[in-house]
């Protein structure tokens, strides 16, 4: 398969894949390295934004060239990931905020909701 690709294109595809995988990897390391929950939620976003995006771009270029037709359904993956991440993020974040407020942890922003 890779023989059908001109050299400059295979370099471009490889650079995209390696960069994307590297960013995703860095995000995973960040998840381990950062000290607390709120900081940790930022790191994996690299995988779902630019890391995943680069891998998908590489896939779109590769299959568009080798199959000689426009292959863009990778973009749908990006769309769905971007639209669904905030749902789980908010669920996790609000659960943590709820816990921290009950435990009265340091530096937790107070809730606006009326107390009953």
């Amino acid at each position: 398969m890779i023989d059908e690709l001109p050299l400059w294109l295979s370099i471009l595809v490889s650079v995209c894949v390696v960069l994307g995988a590297g960013l995703t990897m860095a995000g995973c390391l960040g998840l381990v390295r950062f000290p607390d929950f709120y900081r940790r939620i930022h790191a994996p976003t690299m995988g779902t934004s630019m890391g995943g995006g680069l891998i998908l771009v590489a896939s779109a270029i590769f299959f568009t060239v080798t199959q000689q037709r426009l292959v863009i359904h990778e973009m749908v993956i990006f769309l769905f990931v971007t639209v669904t991440t905030p749902v789980t993020l908010m669920l996790l974040a609000r659960a943590t905020l709820f816990r921290d407020r009950i435990e009265e942890a340091r530096d937790t922003p107070p809730s606006d909701a009326p107390k009953d």
Binding site: Y38, H42, T45, S49, M50, T82, P86, L89, M90
Partner: peptide
């Protein structure tokens, strides 16, 4: 949320 470094809580 999609930009690393900021998150909507």
């Amino acid at each position: 949320t999609a930009t690393p470094g900021s998150a909507w809580l």
